[in-house]
Design a protein around this nucleic acid. Structure first.
Lengths: 212, 212
DNA sequence: TCCACAGTTGAATAGTGGTTCAGGTTTCAG
DNA sequence: CTGAAACCTGAACCACTATTCAACTGTGGA
């Protein structure tokens, strides 16, 4: 709940034309400070409880500077959602690709996801809250992930690694599974090891729960 | 998005001591009006965009009357979450119990759930938003469902209907699956038939996606 | 060195909407 | 019938905070 997610190293993406792009080094530095401060603020207090004044304070800039880079409270939130959506992806996808096959990748990906969530709880909260602050951004995030998932599964089928089936339903189902396991065992409960959970989920996805 | 969920027939439960219990028939009628109005308002506009004044207007009562029954905006929202949590359960559980075995029940339950969601989109939104307005209520809702799920699965295992496994992980995984399928194919997308989706999900849960 | 533009500042503005309250009306037990 | 409790009313209060803006400062190319 009280995490401190860095808004990554890369120069924070211009985020769909909402932020004014800084022209000097000083400007880039300030924008980064504001984005990180916003991530902390919204992560801890949520969108509606979070305040621009407090974001500015955390970033050690004046309120006016905030409005130099973002046209509104919602704009900075949207920028954050896009940024974090990318972060999760960039972190998890390599684990899936590195695995010997898709099923093993599923397991490794979930483990990586859980570990990432445990160290980036603010991120999780921000993406979820976007459903009520910037619904289009929320839908886009999950639609994108689901699409990638479905494509990846179909390719695995082509390689004979998994059975045939309904790719759309499978993608959304597995995605939902992972999100809820992340919520329960990543955000809320740190007790069990991520490998344990990934193994159990892997067994479920691979073989189902049918008898014998 | 523009649904009109009835707050059920029963005298709306006193909801964790927040609402003052009406002593006369008139009072009970007014409380019901307010609860239904609140469900509509929050369902359409969300918690933060929703206003007490508009709830009172929808219910055809004065603002002051609202505060006769609820001590705050949050209080009425909490009452709503508890009420709706119960509604979903009451609607879906019978379908699961009526099925010949747990696996068939899973399929019937999901179909019933999807159909219910399609006619109660406000309900869905309210429960989800509670994560950011009344986190404890949100956690309780899902913890309760997961617990019931896990117990139900274990019993099915005792009857030889499903394989052995990690009940906690399975419960959260399947729950997440259902929630996301409900979001995608219930709230967002009415195109595909609920039976189709339930069948595909059933296949996934029963046999997994492993090869052959 | 110089200056035009990028960046910074924070008090003031402006709109919002939850909550209160003092007094009126309805209900119903006795 | 009667009065005390229950219920209803809605204007006014008040706290809160996103956003603006006019003046000031730093930066870096020429």
């Amino acid at each position: 709940m009280t995490e401190t997610p860095q808004s990554s190293g890369r120069a924070a993406a211009p985020a769909a034309g909402q932020a004014k792009i800084p022209r000097t080094e000083r400007g880039r530095r300030t924008l980064r400070l504001i984005l990180d401060a916003a991530a902390e603020e919204f992560g801890e207090r949520g969108y509606h409880e979070g305040s621009i004044a407090r974001i500015a304070q955390r970033a050690d800039v004046a309120i006016g500077s905030f409005y130099t880079y973002f046209s509104s409270k919602e704009a900075v939130f949207r920028a954050l959602v896009a940024d974090m959506s990318r972060q999760v992806r960039d972190h998890v996808v390599p684990y899936i690709l590195a695995a010997p096959d898709r099923l093993a990748g599923e397991r490794a990906g979930l483990a990586a996801y859980l570990a990432f969530v445990r160290t980036h709880k603010a991120l999780y909260r921000i993406i979820d809250e976007s459903a009520f602050v910037a619904e289009d951004a929320y839908r886009r995030h999950y639609a994108d992930v689901a699409e990638g998932y479905a494509a990846s599964l179909q390719q695995a089928f082509g390689r004979g690694e998994i059975s045939d089936g309904d790719w759309q339903v499978r993608a959304w189902a597995i995605m939902g599974m992972n999100v809820f396991l992340g919520l329960k065992f990543g955000v809320w409960d740190d007790e069990r090891s991520v490998e344990d959970i990934a193994a159990a989920a892997h067994a479920l996805i691979a073989n189902g729960i049918g008898p014998r």
